[in-house]
Design a protein around this nucleic acid. Structure first.
Lengths: 119, 119
DNA sequence: TCTACGTTTCAACGATCGTTGATATGATGA
DNA sequence: TCATCATATCAACGATCGTTGAAACGTAGA
C-alpha cells in the first residue's frame, strides 16, 4: 500500500456513516450484509449509503456481489491488514520497540477475549 | 478508543499533509521534529502546517514541547496502537481467523526487516 | 410482459475543509 | 528593552464533501 491509497482509505474511514458501514461489515464477517440492511444499521438512507459504499469500494475496503434482488457487501479484510502495516511500517523500521505494544495488543485482541462484552 | 475518537483520527490521517506529518514524526522517533523542519519535510508552509498540527494534536496523534525558539512535535505511538485495536476489535471477536494475518504481518514488520530499503 | 422491490445514479444545495496572506504571540540574544 | 526569529492565530476565499429528492436501472415473481 502506497501513500496515495492509504490516504483514500483514511479519508474513507474518516466519515461517520462509512466508518459504521465498514465496522458493521467487518463484524458481519464473510457473509456480509445487504445494502438495505446495512443502511438501516448505519442509520442513513439507502441512496445516501450507496454513495458512500461506492467510495468505500473504490478505496478497496469493501466488496460487493449480487444475490437475487439484493447486493451483498462484505469487508475486504486484507485491505485493513495492509492499512495497519502501512501505519506501522516507518516506526517499525526506525524504532521497533515503540510498535511492539501494538503487536502484543493485536495478538491479545485476536485471542478469544473475555472483554468482548464492553468493547 | 470509541467511535468518535477513531473518527477524528481517521479524518486527521485522511489529508495528505497531515498523513505525511504523522509519518515523518513516526519515523523521526521520540526525538521528534521542529515545526519548521516538519513543514519542509511535508512540503507546505509553516502557517498552514501549524493549522494541521493543531488538528493532529487535537486528535491525539501528536504531542508538542517547546525547545528554545522551536516547538518540537513527536508522534503519539499509543494513539496508533489504539487505532489499530479499534480497527480490528470487531473482526477479532467475531472472526479471529481473518485478522490473524494482520498480526503475523505486524510481527514480521517489527523484526529487523531486510526489506526496509524499498518500504 | 407487467408490477413490485431493492439499489444505484444524477443534479443541486448547504456545509465543511484547506489554503492563503496578514497579523499576533513567544522566546532568544544583544 | 529592543530587534529578530520561529510559530500560532485569524479572516476570507475557493474547492470539496455529504445530503437530499427524484428518477433510472436491474432482478424476481405473477
Amino acid at each position: 500500500m502506497d501513500e496515495r491509497q492509504a490516504l483514500s482509505v483514511f479519508a474513507a474511514l474518516g466519515q461517520e456513516h462509512r466508518l459504521r458501514a465498514v465496522r458493521a461489515l467487518v463484524a458481519a464477517g464473510p457473509d456480509g450484509l445487504a445494502a438495505g440492511v446495512l443502511a438501516e444499521a448505519v442509520g442513513t438512507a439507502s441512496n445516501n449509503l450507496s454513495f458512500h459504499l461506492k467510495e468505500l469500494s473504490h478505496a478497496g475496503l469493501i466488496q460487493s456481489r449480487r444475490k437475487g434482488k439484493s447486493v451483498i457487501y462484505t469487508a475486504a479484510y486484507p485491505a485493513l491488514s495492509d492499512l495497519i502495516q502501512f501505519l506501522m511500517r516507518d516506526c517499525c523500521q526506525g524504532h521497533p520497540e515503540v510498535c511492539t505494544p501494538a503487536v502484543v495488543a493485536l495478538a491479545t485482541c485476536c485471542t478469544p477475549a473475555e472483554d468482548a462484552a464492553h468493547a
